[in-house]
Write a protein that binds this DNA or RNA. Structure first.
Lengths: 138, 138
DNA sequence: TATTGTTATACTCTATAACTATA
DNA sequence: TATAGTTATAGAGTATAACAATA
């Protein structure tokens, strides 16, 4: 029952992410990449592939397009010459901040809940996510 | 705060849908189409485009591929000769049932919650979704 | 031998614009 | 005039397989 409601909610929210990303001329995946790249903290391409849950061969093209737009850059790894590290540029940092700002704003459905409901919701979801963290280790 | 947790949860769940669809050799969109087509209830192609929140021109190709696999069929509308109605075939009905069965199974995160938490979660989400239904009319 | 990233290839999804046949 | 669906086109995401460089 809880899952039914949650699944329905997620389905209703699905379009929001694409829409907010599109406002910044970003595809959903591009937005996800930018989200992953915390300014000042380089990320290896294979780590990004893991985060996106896609094949490494895709990352090349996705990164190519973001790099061509000047939102991130490839750097060398100091430890492993096979690895390319990704880091957002100054311009990428700005777009990322704008994106995160939009994503952080709660949608109407959540904003309309009472404070008590919001607190309860947060508490339960935190427990659910924690349960995942445990089983993930197995 | 509630939105932070919810957003994070949705992000963690994102891969699940694709993965369950892939088990049945369905792309995410193909799975969504099958989900929309309740057996015995024909749906117009433009209505499907609305449900998928995509351009009508895409639906042609998506439906072509599902029809080629014998999962659905195009029929004529009795009222408007411009309209094509879609209906799942018997084989499509089976695949759809299998898909819905998989999607309905709650993920680890939800299943691990107490009954009380699950009830509370369902109740709050129901309120949230209802709030959307109201603002949607505006 | 295994891993990292790239390339080549093929398929799917996506939007826009132009078209047809209907209404 | 407007709507439903198709086609043409172009771009982006996706997986698989093969490859070079490096570990």
């Amino acid at each position: 029952m809880a899952w039914d409601q949650l699944f329905r909610f997620m389905q209703l929210q699905r379009a929001r992410y694409s829409s907010l990303a599109a406002e910044l001329d970003l595809s959903p995946v591009q937005a996800s990449v930018l989200k992953e790249l915390e300014p000042g903290t380089p990320v290896a391409m294979h780590a990004l592939a893991d985060a996106l849950a896609c094949d490494a061969s895709n990352v090349t093209g996705i990164v190519d397009r973001l790099e061509a737009r000047g939102l991130l850059e490839r750097r060398e790894s100091s430890h492993d010459r096979r690895v390319r590290m990704l880091m957002v540029t100054e311009r990428g940092r700005e777009v990322r901040a704008s994106l995160l700002g939009r994503l952080r704003r709660p949608p109407q459905e959540i904003a309309s809940l009472s404070r008590a409901d919001q607190r309860t919701l947060a508490r339960i979801l935190k427990r659910a996510i924690a349960a995942r963290a445990v089983t993930r280790v197995d």
